[in-house]
C-alpha cells in the first residue's frame, strides 16, 4: 500500500478501532449504573475510531520538494501548490503560500486597465523575480519563453478601439447644448 500511495502521490491512512474498555479511559471497577448503561448501548459505540497517517518516506518527501522547487523556478504555481499539498503539515503550509502567490498573480493579470495600479506591487514583484531568474545560466529555453510570456501578460494593455477613440474625440463639450454657450457672460452671471 505504501509503494502504491507513493506512486500516486496519495497519503496513506490506517484506521483502527480501539475498544474503550481496553483503552484505559474507564475505571476497572465500573459501578452498577455504568455497567447497565454500557449494556444498553449498541455494540458499535464501544469502539473508538482512530486514524493514523503514515509518514512519507525520506525519498518521497525529497522528490516532492525537488519537483516543487523546480515548479516555483518556472513559475508553475498551480503545480507547485498541488505537489506540496501531497506532503506533511509543513509542506501543506507551503502549498497555501503558493496558492496565495497564484491568486495574487491572477488578480493582477485579470485586472482592468484602470485598476492595474491597485496591483502594482504584485506586477513589480513578478517582474523583479523574472529578472532574477533570467540571469540564471541553468534556465532552459522553454522556461525563458514561459517567463517572457508572463512579463507580457503582466504588462498587457488592452488597445482602445478606434470607435471608442472617435466617440471620445467627438463628444459634445460640456454645456455646448446651452443657448448661452459661446456668448459673453455678464459680470452678474460670472459672480453667481
Amino acid at each position: 500500500a505504501k509503494s502504491w500511495c507513493a506512486m500516486q502521490a496519495a497519503p496513506l491512512f490506517l484506521v483502527s478501532f480501539v475498544d474503550e474498555e481496553s483503552s484505559g479511559n474507564r475505571s476497572s471497577w465500573p459501578d452498577r449504573k455504568e455497567n447497565q448503561r454500557q449494556q444498553e448501548q449498541p455494540r458499535a459505540s464501544q469502539h473508538e475510531i482512530q486514524l493514523h497517517r503514515f509518514a512519507m518516506g525520506r525519498e518521497s518527501e525529497k522528490a516532492l520538494l525537488e519537483t516543487a522547487s523546480s515548479c516555483l523556478d518556472n513559475f508553475e504555481l498551480l503545480s507547485a501548490m498541488r505537489v506540496l499539498a501531497a506532503g506533511d503539515a509543513d509542506m501543506r503550509s507551503l502549498s497555501e503560500d503558493c496558492e496565495c502567490l497564484r491568486n495574487g498573480y491572477l488578480r493582477a493579470y485579470n485586472a482592468k486597465n484602470t485598476e492595474k495600479d491597485l496591483h502594482i506591487e504584485t506586477i513589480l514583484g513578478v517582474l523583479e523575480m523574472v529578472k532574477e531568474l533570467w540571469s540564471s545560466q541553468s534556465l532552459g529555453a522553454d522556461t525563458r519563453v514561459r517567463l517572457a510570456v508572463m512579463v507580457g501578460e503582466m504588462l498587457k494593455h488592452s488597445p482602445v478601439s478606434k470607435k471608442k477613440v472617435d466617440a471620445i474625440l467627438n463628444r459634445p463639450l460640456l454645456g455646448s447644448q446651452s443657448q448661452r454657450f459661446g456668448k459673453r457672460a455678464s459680470h452678474k452671471c460670472l459672480s453667481s
Binding site: K62, L65, S69, L72, L101, G104, L124, G125, E128
Partner: peptide, 22 residues
C-alpha cells in the same frame, strides 16, 4: 508583498531539501 512571499517560499523549500540531504 508578493515578492517576499515568493522568496520566502522558495527559501523554505530549499532549506527543507538541504536538511533532508544532510
Amino acid at each position: 508583498s508578493w515578492k517576499s512571499t515568493y522568496q520566502k517560499t522558495r527559501r523554505k523549500i530549499r532549506n527543507k531539501l538541504s536538511a533532508l540531504s544532510s
